[in-house]
Amino acid sequence: MMKPVRSILAILALGGLVAACQGQMPKTESKRDMLADSGFKVVSLKTPGQAASFKKLPPHKLVRKTWQGKPVWVYADPTMCGCLYMGTQDNYNAYIKEASKQMMATAMRANFADDPYSPSSMDATVDNDWDWGEWGNPGYYGLPY
């Protein structure tokens, strides 16, 4: 008997959390911006050897390399800046955390976009011309007006 009640409460709590988060528009950043914000350093190609090594990396993918026994993450961007982003494991972890938040926010918006009962799909435009008529004063209903 307690399991259905717990399930209902869990669903209501999750719904409330989703509704609370819908009012906040997450900032959308490019992968390059998120890499830089996570502490990755932008490295320009200065020598023919660097350019040759750069061309061997898969474009637009984070790749784990090892330097002096420690992981180093690199991201080759041949199209926008023709540069390499380089970061530590901590930088990578920070990037993954931010990227995960953005993916979740995008998935939540997509999930509720067509749901007529979702608070995010309701029209939030201001309509000052509405005739209150029979509704009277919104303060009567406990609204702070």
Rank of each mutant, 00 (worst) to 15 (best):
M1S: 06
K3H: 01
K3A: 04
P4F: 09
V5E: 04
V5D: 00
R6I: 02
R6K: 09
A10I: 01
L12N: 00
A13Y: 04
A13E: 10
A13T: 09
L14Y: 10
G16S: 12
L17R: 00
V18C: 03
V18Y: 01
V18G: 01
C21M: 10
C21F: 05
Q22D: 09
Q22P: 02
Q22K: 07
Q24M: 09
M25R: 05
P26E: 05
K27V: 13
T28H: 01
S30H: 14
S30K: 07
R32S: 06
R32F: 02
D33H: 08
L35Q: 08
D37V: 03
D37Q: 15
S38E: 09
F40K: 03
V43S: 04
L45Y: 05
T47A: 08
T47N: 07
T47M: 13
T47H: 14
A51P: 02
A51W: 10
A52V: 12
S53L: 14
S53P: 12
F54E: 11
F54W: 04
K55G: 04
K56H: 10
L57M: 12
L57S: 06
L62V: 08
L62K: 05
V63W: 15
V63E: 15
R64T: 11
R64L: 11
K65M: 12
T66N: 01
T66W: 04
W67L: 08
W67E: 14
Q68D: 14
Q68H: 05
P71E: 11
P71R: 04
P71H: 09
P78V: 12
P78A: 06
M80Q: 15
C83W: 10
L84Y: 06
L84R: 06
Y85F: 14
Y85K: 03
G87Y: 05
G87A: 11
T88A: 04
D90I: 03
Y92A: 08
Y92L: 02
A94C: 03
Y95K: 07
Y95D: 04
I96R: 09
A99V: 11
S100Q: 07
A105W: 05
T106C: 02
T106M: 06
T106Q: 13
N111S: 09
N111H: 03
F112P: 00
A113K: 06
A113Q: 05
A113T: 02
P116D: 06
Y117N: 11
S118I: 07
S118P: 00
P119G: 09
S120A: 14
S120R: 09
S121D: 03
M122E: 03
M122Y: 03
M122V: 15
A124C: 08
T125S: 11
V126G: 02
N128I: 10
N128G: 00
D129A: 12
W130P: 00
W132T: 12
G133N: 13
E134K: 14
G136S: 09
G136D: 12
G136A: 10
N137I: 14
P138W: 15
G142E: 11
G142K: 10
L143E: 11
P144W: 15
P144E: 15
